[in-house]
Design a protein around this nucleic acid. Structure first.
Lengths: 242, 242
DNA sequence: GAGTGGTCTAGACCACTGC
DNA sequence: CAGTGGTCTAGACCACTCG
């Protein structure tokens, strides 16, 4: 027999996609309350239980945040308690100390072959490169080199970076309307080169953790390519498996 | 007003706990089909929807595996498609090749302070230490040193390890009834010592990825402490954030 | 066709928040 | 108190698997 519905998609998944569209379109902005489940059920002409399942998935994807008695909110990088922090560092002894981001450089360039491929933009398109240092308790721990598509982040500058209080993703979200949804990382151990060693205050050639990350916005569009060098003398990268 | 139910636990969570107990007791073994949702609903005197929600969570925890039209199965490390594989390695160029585990040593010891703490056993309790090499496409990539509580894994030997075809977790599950549920990892970059360098065929002092892992069985009981040294010359440790 | 998990509904009631 | 998300139910029907 012929398959009746080869691309069967349950109702709640269709509702989820409609809501994703509303999020992407900015109908509901970061931090906003979205309409209640009963309102959404009316709007989409489905039962409240079906809306619920769509919201469940969006909440599981960390795009929405439910708060009993209050409502459902659009996740925001501004809200530290809600949105995932991509940084997976812990101090070897005790909790992680106060952090500070120190922007070092910010310059324009043209996308080379690898940057174009990773960011999904044409070769020689404008890109922006940012170098910055992350400190914990005053000690340099992470040296980041960040590649951004220049057309989207055209206004970014070293002054803006230095003035910004908060995470980079918070800046991207607030100023450039780019919300990072998920990221993929590849970790390797490498030897510190001259400049890396100097900035991280370790000996040249000493082992560093190299963390290459691609961050994606809505629709799995890559919006950031980042390479971090982590000094793991006093910190470790933690991961949960299961 | 006084809180009516300070330790409120929804019905489906209680059902989940009952099912967890059944799993832990071995009433349903790895690979088995568990009773259908309607049967479970009868057994626990709740509606099918409530059972469903309990099963949903157990499936999300990777303890159960749903297969539409067939039934719900207990996840097993023997089933490569179902149970999470803890190994997060990819080849830098292309997919990962055929792997082989090469047991090097297996000896008895008494738990030192750190092993006792991590494994949650008394000081000087018997432990078993295993060293093994993991090869991909014939190249040594991971050197593991594994610490196991001796009382649980008393029968393990180098001969058994060499004879076993399959993953270590599969062995633990089949022969010792220990099913690993989740694990925590801490990653750092370290310099290769003499023996590590020799076994992994890299230069002494070259950077290696150190992966320290604690694996937990039911009830969050730690059952394995493992330290792996990964050669990341041709491979990377991948991670999904989101 | 029988049995399984998967979806959807409508309605009742509970727990939490804030006015 | 009203409004929100959270739980639970009972029942109908759909999609998938297998004999």
């Amino acid at each position: 027999m012929a398959q009746e519905s080869p691309t069967f998609s349950p109702l709640y998944r269709q509702i989820k996609n409609l809501m994703l569209q509303a999020l992407e379109d900015g109908e509901w902005g970061p931090g906003d309350v979205i309409p209640s489940e009963t309102e959404l059920a009316l709007r989409f002409s489905v039962s409240q239980g079906t809306v619920r399942k769509a919201v469940d998935e969006l909440a599981a994807d960390n795009l929405l945040l439910r708060r009993q008695g209050k409502g459902t909110f659009v996740a925001s990088h501004d809200d530290p308690r809600a949105f995932f922090r991509f940084l997976r560092l812990v101090a070897l002894n005790g909790e992680i100390g106060p952090s500070r981001s120190v922007p070092l450089e910010c310059w324009r360039a043209k996308a080379g072959q690898e940057a174009a491929r990773v960011l999904g933009i044409p070769l020689a398109d404008p890109i922006i490169v940012v170098r910055r240092l992350l400190e914990f308790s005053g000690e340099p721990v992470v040296l980041d080199e960040i590649y951004l598509p220049g057309n989207t982040f055209s206004g970014i500058s070293i002054e803006e970076l230095k003035a910004w209080q908060g995470s980079l993703y918070s800046l991207f979200e607030s100023r450039y309307g780019v919300r990072m949804i998920r990221a993929e990382e590849r970790l390797r151990a490498v030897a510190a080169d001259r400049t890396g060693a100097k900035l991280l205050k370790v000996a040249e050639g000493s082992p560093l953790l190299s963390v290459e990350r691609v961050s994606f916005s809505y629709g799995d569009r890559p919006m950031e390519w980042r390479r971090g060098l982590y000094s793991t003398a006093n910190h470790a990268y933690v991961n949960q498996l299961g």
